[in-house]
Simulated scan of single mutants.
Amino acid sequence: MAQLVRDIMTGDPATVAPQTSVAEVARIMRDEDLGVILVTDGDDLRGVVTDRDLVVRSISQGGDPERTAVAGACSDEVVTVGPDEDLGQAVRLMREHSVRRIPVVDHGRPVGIVSLGDMAVEREPESALGDISAARPNT
C-alpha cells in the first residue's frame, strides 16, 4: 500500500502574516527550533520563508530587520502537496523544483510540512541523512 504525505508530515506548521518583521520571524525560528515558516494571509498560504531566505534575501540587503516585512524575503511561488497524496509525488515535486520542504495544503489551508529529512527518516532511517534528521538538535 502506498504511503501518504499525512503519514510523515509535521502537522500544525508555524505561520506568520506577510507584514511580520524579519527580526520577529528569526526569533520564532530560534525559539521553536525551526528552519522554515509559512507566510499566510488568514488561512491562505502566501509564501514560505527559510532561515537561509532571511539571510540571503533580507539581512544581506541591509535595512532594519525590525522594520523589514517578511513578505520581501519569502518564496512566493510555492509548490504544495495534499495530505492524501502519495509520498512519491512529494519526492517528484522536491526533485523537479529543487526544494527540501513542501507545505502540505488541504482545501487551500496549510496543515503541515513534509521535508526531505522526514522522508529520509521514514524511508532510509539507517542512511546518513535519516540518522542526522532523526537526531536531537544541538542547540
Rank of each mutant, 00 (worst) to 15 (best):
V78F: 07
G130F: 09
D118I: 03
D7S: 13
P137C: 02
G63I: 11
S115Y: 07
R57T: 09
L34F: 05
G88V: 08
V48T: 14
I28V: 15
A134G: 05
G62E: 05
V121S: 02
V79R: 07
G42K: 08
V48W: 15
R52S: 09
V105P: 01
E122M: 00
G112L: 02
L54N: 08
V48R: 13
V70S: 11
R101H: 15
R52M: 13
V48E: 13
Q61R: 15
V16F: 12
V5R: 02
Q19H: 10
H107Y: 10
P83W: 07
P103D: 11
G63H: 07
D131I: 03
R100W: 08
M29E: 07
R136K: 14
P13Y: 06
G108Y: 15
D44L: 11
G63Y: 13
S98A: 13
H107Q: 07
S115C: 08
V121H: 10
E96M: 03
M9S: 02
A135H: 12
V16Y: 09
C74T: 13
D118W: 03
D7P: 00
R123N: 05
V81G: 10
I132F: 14
S98L: 10
L116M: 14
D7W: 01
V81M: 05
G130T: 12
V79M: 04
D44G: 04
L34M: 06
V81P: 14
V55K: 06
M94E: 01
T10C: 08
G112W: 08
P13T: 09
R92H: 09
C74I: 10
L87M: 10
T68H: 02
V104N: 00
A73Y: 15
M119I: 15
T80K: 09
L4E: 14
D44A: 15
R27W: 03
R136C: 00
